[in-house]
Design a protein around this nucleic acid. Sequence first.
DNA 1: ATGACCTAACTTTTAGGA
Length: 261
Amino acid sequence: MRIATWNVNSVRQRIEHLTAWLKEAAPDVVCLQELKCLDEAFPRLEIESLGYHIETLGQKTFNGVAILSKHKIEDCRRGLPHQPGEPQSRYIEALIAPKAQKPIRIASLYAPNGNPLGTEKFSYKLDFLEALIAHAKTWLQSEERFVIAGDYNIIPKPQDAAHPDLWVNDALYRPESRAKWQELLALGLTDAVRATSDADQIYTFWDYQAGAWQKNNGIRIDHLLLSPQATDGLKSSAIDAHVRGWEKPSDHVPVRIDLEF
DNA sequence: ATGACCTAACTTTTAGGA
């Protein structure tokens, strides 16, 4: 089973990229972030015609997450339990039920950016991640296969940035943010990309500004975290970085894994 | 050269992103 995550930075702006990439990568399940549109404006037909079921949690202008699946979607839930603050569309989860396989729980996550430091935005980021940790704990008790995939807005290690020194005062790289990431790993979750590669220069985001893509000035902030039962089936991971070179791209690229049980 | 992006919106400027 191929599972992917992609922050598309407006699904309506990116629909042609999305359909082209779906045909090319042929994922079974896709977690999307930053839809930037309401549910009724989501381009369902273009995606359904490629054989996908769709569940969305949209929002006008900002945020918005979705799950696409070639397999039947059961028991979809919107919002993170105990998510802090005003409702923001940053989390959707679904039980995916492939034929002749155990079901797998998959969540699409868009964690807050958290900048600037010293504001309620940074504390909101940390509170949101705390709610995610609590939710992961309850999921772990089920001892089921699950994947939490999305834009975590966390650079886990210096190795995950081309110029880590430039990020020291940024919410994506602050020790408080990275400590939340470490807490998730300490629960027993596996960073699928790092579990399959210790290579440098594995990035998922390149800023639009200052020729970041051309200079390969990237960061790795889009992640798939796997439960122990899902990790048992982890075969490989890939980052479709070439998509960043397409005309009018998202600033993030798709990240995907293959599971085999 | 001290710049250089992109998106959505009650658009001619702003907020948010990272």
